[in-house]
Nucleic acid binder design. Structure first.
Lengths: 98, 98
DNA sequence: GTTATAGGCAAGTGCCCGCTTGCCTGTCAA
DNA sequence: TTGACAGGCAAGCGGGCACTTGCCTATAAC
């Protein structure tokens, strides 16, 4: 079995990538916050359950970490798994800026 | 429409990722070479047509560039599209080595 | 306690995608 | 010219995945 299978599977969906964009812009959102901002700011109207399942996939891939507080569940992005991608297939001009 | 949709779609399949591993190790292989080495060295027995379709997806994503020479077609890896991933979601400790 | 809010669980469905199958095109050696 | 070799094209099939639907749990406000 491949190690990063969950990572690439998580990145394979456009909605999940947009969720990562949202969490990059504003980290630590709840499920309902993400739903609202995805609809308003990104134009995609997905149901709450759909987003919830997407977040579960992202969490399994290690790209999202959660923190419970009362009845709220905050979602935080973690981009560190992405490093394994460029480590696996090295990009030649790694650092463009001097 | 998203820009890097083809890129993430290409990376979403385990066989295609193994093809990138193969081309990283030995660049400029033909279709039949890739088929043989995937079978022997990686244990996955995919048909020639399957690998051909995988290479087409990788080429459409910009991860593989081809060069025809007579009846041979050599495949070269191009990892530069991967840079857009870490640019989109910046990794905090970007450069581990000083 | 009662109601509203935030989130979870599980079964069912439709569709995309990887793979096969079969046949065709083009290049090189005999 | 004929055969073998390297690769391409297109239709069909099956499984996985995203999404819905319906109901349930838990925390907080009233």
């Amino acid at each position: 079995m491949e190690a990063d299978a969950d990572l690439f599977r998580a990145l394979g969906d456009a909605t999940r990538r947009t969720i990562l964009d949202e969490l990059t812009e504003r980290d630590g959102q709840t499920l309902f916050e993400i739903c609202g901002r995805l609809t308003v700011r990104h134009g995609l109207s997905s149901s709450r359950q759909a987003i919830s399942q997407h977040l579960a996939v992202l969490e399994q891939a290690g790209l999202v970490r959660t923190r419970r507080q009362g009845r709220y569940k905050f979602h935080h992005i973690d981009t560190s798994p992405l490093r394994s991608i460029v480590e696996r297939w090295p990009v030649h001009g790694e650092d463009p800026n001097p």
